[in-house]
Simulated scan of single mutants.
Amino acid sequence: MMTEQIQTMLAEAAGRDAADFADYDQNIFDAGLIDSMATVQFLFALQDEFNIQVPVSGFERDEWSTVNLIAERVKELQ
């Protein structure tokens, strides 16, 4: 399932346990689960994993702030 894959990728990029990202509707930025450097690393991993292009310059945190929103964005970019 894509959401589980994204959860694992977020945890790897942030150096955290995957359980920290288990609430797919939790705002990962507001919760302090991921910082800006890990976000960039995560976006590159998303591009590689799902063969998409994520425009970092047009990145809007509000559109990428939960696991569910990230999954929606990835589906739109595929």
Rank of each mutant, 00 (worst) to 15 (best):
D17S: 12
D17K: 07
D17Q: 11
A18E: 06
A18G: 04
A18C: 02
A19L: 06
D20Y: 01
D20H: 01
D20E: 12
D20Q: 07
D20M: 06
F21I: 03
A22S: 13
D25N: 14
Q26Y: 02
I28G: 00
F29Y: 15
F29N: 03
D30Y: 09
D30V: 08
D30P: 02
A31W: 12
A31M: 11
G32W: 01
G32K: 07
G32D: 01
L33T: 02
L33R: 03
I34F: 03
I34K: 02
I34W: 01
S36N: 14
A38V: 12
A38Q: 08
T39A: 00
T39V: 10
T39Q: 08
V40G: 04
V40Q: 02
V40R: 04
Q41K: 14
F42P: 02
F42I: 01
F42V: 03
F42K: 07
F44D: 11
F44V: 14
F44K: 08
F44N: 12
F44W: 08
A45T: 14
A45H: 09
A45G: 11
L46D: 02
L46N: 01
Q47W: 06
E49N: 13
F50D: 09
F50Q: 10
F50H: 13
I52V: 15
Q53M: 11
Q53R: 15
V54Y: 09
V54W: 10
